[in-house]
């Protein structure tokens, strides 16, 4: 959802303060655990905590007690969620005393990755496999959730997608370019301490050698900065060298 003015000083719950673990239990739908640290946000102790799970048009909401006494419903089975691999979460704290339903703090677009476990690292690009016909890959990008690299189901080897040098060299530079173009053409204001996925991407990119802060202002053409950023990304891997080495290794086999 497009965000507008924050008149009521709703607080942002840092993603690092939330850990969500998705637990598979095939053939049944997965369940999840959520843990969060809200102590440094100065929220009222009786603020009510909810965790919402969603994927496309499916949605479930779970009562997680209060800020002072967090506790969850026993049954946290995600039976109404349409996807068993990729589920987004939202953590909300609402006012229990004053204006009913006023939002005090929120973290949105959280992802629990069943193969990575909770909180091991901050994921900036999800990967999933879908039926794409003859399209090898595409990107799902929107304002609210971590972007997802959608790979053709026929290439259904997650390890290959993650670590194969040829796949990396041919796909990821284009992915980075598309993501940065989306970010810089949108109206997001970069917050170096922010938890929005766009902040995490810009933080990651600006930490690369020779990459300045992203350009600001509509009158500045962002393409030269994006070119520099993509080059720096490829240098760091290094994408082309690794690709050539993998080709040489293939030829020797």
């Amino acid at each position: 959802m497009k965000r507008t003015f924050n008149y009521t000083n709703r607080k942002r719950i840092p993603r690092g303060n939330v850990q969500i673990a998705l637990k598979k239990q095939e053939p049944n739908p997965p369940t999840f655990d959520a843990r969060f640290n809200l102590s440094d946000l100065k929220l009222p102790p009786d603020g009510k905590v909810y965790v919402e799970a969603y994927y496309r048009t499916s949605y479930m909401r779970f009562d997680f007690g209060t800020v002072a006494e967090p506790g969850s419903e026993e049954d946290r089975t995600l039976r109404d969620i349409d996807n068993r691999e990729l589920v987004y979460f939202r953590v909300k704290v609402t006012d229990a005393t004053g204006e009913q339903g006023r939002l005090l703090a929120e973290a949105d677009g959280l992802i629990a990755n069943p193969t990575e476990g909770p909180g091991n690292h901050v994921c900036i690009l999800e990967v999933k496999f879908e039926d794409l016909g003859n399209l090898p890959w595409s990107l799902e990008i929107n304002d609210s959730a971590t972007p997802t690299l959608v790979v053709n189901r026929r290439i259904s080897n997650k390890e290959y997608v993650r670590s194969n040098a040829a796949f990396f060299a041919l796909v990821y530079p284009a992915v980075v370019r598309e993501l940065l173009t989306f970010i810089l053409n949108g109206d997001h204001e970069y917050d170096p301490d922010g938890d929005d996925w766009r902040d995490r991407w810009l933080r990651f990119i600006t930490a690369l050698p020779d990459v300045d802060s992203p350009p600001e202002g509509e009158e500045i053409d962002p393409r030269p900065w994006i070119d520099t950023a993509v080059r720096a990304f490829c240098e760091r891997q290094p994408a082309c060298t690794a690709f050539l080495e993998s080709l040489a290794a293939e030829e020797q086999r």
């Binding site: 965000r3 009521t8 709703r10 909810y50």
Partner: peptide
């Protein structure tokens, strides 16, 4: 409603609210 969404927990409401 998009503006309300940053202020209220809309999922907790009834349509009449």
């Amino acid at each position: 409603v998009q503006q309300f969404d940053v202020t209220y927990d809309l999922y907790a409401m009834e349509p009449a609210q």
